[in-house]
């Protein structure tokens, strides 16, 4: 149903195509009732993060975990695999090569999923704005829920960002995954524009 006999995964060789799922994402509508509110509450208070240490942002995540800032008390915990995480933290500038991995990891997370992008580089390219290899804005490629400005933002700022994210989730606005599915063609076009050797499936399940 998702895939109206349109050829997919054309970036892969014929042999590889059989190894990957060909389906594309679909919008999973949230329930419009109190159950969803309850579930959103649980989601907001159990934020499992997938840290993507692309740039200097990764440095700032470490103090967040340790005793001084102790993110655990907000129900935030790191998880080692995208499958289990619900928050994707992009830790700074993203090169074209990295973006490919960001897209893969983002797509491997399960709906609902949220993205926090750290630092100026993710917002408008920051100090690398005119580089031939650093992308300028993440939200052209994946939906971002929260941007945290700064070069780099301090852990306090990150915690504040998480606070904002919680508010978003509780308000039922953390629907990045659905947004991505909805505007899938647009996002893919943007991604494909800069990722030239597209050797992964169209949607990484």
């Amino acid at each position: 149903m998702e895939n109206n006999n349109k050829p997919v995964n054309l970036g892969l060789s014929a042999a590889d195509r059989e190894l990957f799922c060909e389906a594309l994402p679909v919008v999973r509508k949230p329930l419009q009732n109190f159950i969803e509110k309850f579930l959103n509450w649980a989601r907001a208070n159990s934020l499992w993060i997938l840290g993507f240490g692309t740039g200097c942002g990764a440095i700032e995540l470490r103090p967040l975990m340790t005793s001084r800032y102790d993110m655990y008390r907000y129900g935030i915990a790191p998880r080692p695999t995208p499958r289990q995480s619900s928050v994707f933290i992009i830790g700074g500038y993203a090169s074209v090569k990295t973006l490919k991995r960001i897209v893969r990891s983002y797509e491997q997370m399960q709906n609902p999923k949220f993205v926090i992008a750290l630092g100026s580089c993710t917002i408008n390219g920051g100090m690398y704005w005119d580089s031939y290899n650093t992308i300028n804005r993440i939200d052209a490629y994946i939906p971002v829920d929260i941007y945290i400005a700064g070069c780099m933002p301090r852990p306090e700022a990150i915690i504040a960002g998480f606070g904002k994210l919680k508010e978003l989730i509780l308000a039922g606005k953390g629907e990045g995954a659905n947004k991505y599915a909805d505007n899938f063609e647009w996002y893919k076009a943007n991604q494909r524009k800069i990722i030239k050797d597209w050797n992964m499936p169209d949607y990484n399940w």
């Binding site: 999973r28 649980a42 208070n45 159990s46 399960q110």
Partner: peptide, 17 residues
């Protein structure tokens, strides 16, 4: 009660593979 929250959240995921 964090473990309860985690379990509820995990069960509340809308997609699975």
């Amino acid at each position: 009660w964090q473990p309860f929250l985690d379990i509820i959240k995990n069960n509340a995921k809308r997609t699975m593979i």
